Simulated assay, not measured.
Amino acid sequence: MTALQTAALIIFVLSVSYIYSKADIKGAFAASGTRLAIVNATALLLLFWLFRLHTSLGPDIHFLLTTALTLTLGFRIATICATFCLIITCIAGSVSWSMLGVQGIATILIPVGLTYTVYALSFHKIPRNFLVYIFLCAFLPAALALGAAMLTLAGYYVLDGIYDSYAIIDNYVMIIPLMLFPEALLNGTAITLLVVYKPEWVYTFHDKFYFDDQ
């Protein structure tokens, strides 16, 4: 394990430990609707993370789905569930254990934090309506989160000398624009369907804010 990997692991473990200490896990599982949302969202996320595109010319590529997870479960529970999925991918061999911290920061802490920040800002600073929630809180953060995650990983791979900068730019960074719209569409569609058919599962959505006040 390199120095960068060790530092990333320490940061990730400390961050998740703090978030876990502030999360109401028992309360979340006590409500049947929330319990179902956690189980189903975590299972879907794990499915997407296990099936990834392995390339011989650069890092693996896969959709994140963390924006939909964050909007559905909230910042704390989403971080914990995503961490659980990351550990399972390490056990399955899809991700190296030495990369746990780096992957945790790039694909969990940054995307979840970015998504919840955009949601919080839009909730408090922009007039609330259904379209704002779907497009500004789901579609936009999903694209931003994936871009930020992939750029973070690209920077790490170059800094740690795993790939040279030319290989990363040609085989990884250049793919980012192609991934943004599918990621945004995937998350936006998932949240739209949940809000329409299972709004009680979505932690960040409330009828009284997005419909009743209109």
Results as ranks from 00 to 15, higher is better:
residue 143 A to Q: 03
residue 143 A to L: 06
residue 144 L to N: 10
residue 144 L to R: 10
residue 144 L to P: 08
residue 145 A to C: 06
residue 145 A to Y: 04
residue 146 L to V: 02
residue 146 L to W: 01
residue 146 L to K: 01
residue 147 G to H: 05
residue 147 G to I: 01
residue 150 M to E: 14
residue 150 M to Q: 14
residue 150 M to W: 14
residue 151 L to F: 13
residue 151 L to Q: 14
residue 152 T to P: 01
residue 153 L to T: 03
residue 153 L to Q: 07
residue 153 L to C: 08
residue 154 A to W: 04
residue 155 G to T: 01
residue 156 Y to V: 12
residue 156 Y to S: 11
residue 156 Y to G: 07
residue 157 Y to F: 14
residue 157 Y to W: 14
residue 158 V to F: 04
residue 159 L to S: 11
residue 159 L to A: 15
residue 160 D to C: 07
residue 160 D to R: 00
residue 161 G to E: 04
residue 162 I to V: 15
residue 162 I to K: 07
residue 163 Y to C: 00
residue 163 Y to V: 01
residue 164 D to W: 07
residue 165 S to H: 12
residue 165 S to M: 12
residue 166 Y to S: 15
residue 166 Y to M: 15
residue 167 A to R: 13
residue 167 A to H: 07
residue 168 I to P: 00
residue 169 I to F: 13
residue 169 I to N: 15
residue 170 D to R: 09
residue 170 D to N: 09
residue 170 D to I: 06
residue 172 Y to N: 01
residue 174 M to P: 02
residue 174 M to E: 10
residue 175 I to E: 13
residue 175 I to L: 14
residue 175 I to A: 13
residue 175 I to Q: 13
residue 175 I to H: 13
residue 175 I to D: 08
residue 176 I to Y: 05
residue 177 P to R: 12
residue 179 M to K: 07
residue 179 M to F: 09
residue 179 M to S: 12
residue 180 L to I: 09
residue 180 L to K: 04
residue 181 F to C: 08
residue 181 F to P: 05
residue 181 F to K: 06
residue 181 F to W: 11
residue 181 F to Y: 07
residue 181 F to V: 15
residue 182 P to Y: 11
residue 182 P to T: 10
residue 182 P to V: 08
residue 182 P to Q: 11
residue 183 E to N: 03
residue 183 E to K: 04
residue 184 A to F: 02
